[in-house]
């Protein structure tokens, strides 16, 4: 059922309303709603099995909800195919990074920039697109530089440190200049220093790009996000600023378990 329009001042960039997903007999998501405003960072957290991954897949078009709808810039969004994300102005990363191992770092990023490319098949066949190529190269190098990894441009991702590979994956998502970035557990496998770096990048990005991230690491979420939505058993149990959510007893209960009368933790 559609909910009333958000009370925020501006139209949300991206919104999910009443999303429900059922797998067989299990209700994975139940009436989940959230909003991302332009230039803000929204975090989605919750204990394991809360439905974060399912929600994430629905948000970027990988899964079709049984109920509910998505809206982009106020307009309803039908079934989105993954390849259409870039056209809409969205970009996502994968948990497994999904880097192309047989291509250089630069080429990896250039694939992400595909959306901006002008050269078509016939141009490619007759080898005429080198100016277009040059533009793509420039754009890609710029993004790599922004993330501090432009020195790795000619290398293959295979032998590179994990942190660098993560940045390359992020660069690939960023090069299409998305309005909304969807990050799937971006902090996993990172050192505290790298996590800080990542937080910095995300915050810097808010000038142009809103971010929705699904995450486990509380430190990152609390320091980076403007708003946080908490899921448990497929429902939204809390939503608000990081501070508000931190103090919410429902959230604590969800993470630590409801205390039972005689002191046992269930």
């Amino acid at each position: 059922m559609a909910q009333p329009v958000s009370t925020k001042a501006a139209e949300p960039l991206f919104a999910a309303r009443g999303v429900s997903v059922r797998f067989g007999g299990v209700q994975a998501l139940s009436q989940v709603s959230l909003e991302v405003a332009p230039h803000e960072v929204l975090g989605v957290i919750g204990p394991n099995g809360a439905g974060k991954t399912t929600l994430f897949n629905v948000l970027c078009g990988f899964a079709v909800p049984d109920e509910g709808e998505l809206a982009w810039e106020g307009r309803p969004l039908g079934r989105v195919r993954p390849s259409q994300l870039a056209g809409l102005g969205m970009a996502r990363t994968l948990q497994g990074l999904g880097l192309f191992d047989r291509m250089t770092v630069l080429e990896n990023v250039m694939v992400g920039a595909d959306h901006h490319a002008r050269a078509g098949f016939w141009t490619g066949l007759f080898g005429l697109g080198h100016r277009d190529e040059a533009r793509l190269v420039e754009r890609s190098r710029a993004v790599l530089a922004r993330l501090g990894v432009e020195d790795y441009a000619e290398r293959m991702p295979g032998g590179l440190p994990y942190g660098v590979r993560k940045k390359v994956a992020l660069a690939r998502a960023l090069v299409s200049e998305p309005r909304l970035l969807l990050l799937d557990e971006p902090a996993s496998g990172l050192s505290p220093h790298e996590m800080e770096e990542l937080g910095g990048v995300v915050r810097d990005l808010t000038a142009t790009t809103a971010t929705l991230l699904v995450e486990h690491h509380m430190d990152l979420v609390m320091s980076v996000c403007d708003h946080v939505t908490v899921l448990d058993f497929g429902r939204v149990i809390a939503s608000g600023t990081p501070a508000q959510v931190q103090d919410d007893p429902a959230v604590t209960a969800a993470y630590l378990g409801t205390p039972v009368a005689d002191g046992e933790v269930s």
Binding site: C60, S83, L94, G98, L99, F100, D101, M110, L136
Partner: peptide
């Protein structure tokens, strides 16, 4: 060309390629 790059990407990891557009 760009077309070739697209091909290499999709043969490497088609899910990631699709996400990249």
């Amino acid at each position: 060309s760009r077309v070739g790059r697209t091909w290499r990407a999709l043969s490497n990891d088609d899910v990631a390629a699709e996400i990249a557009g």
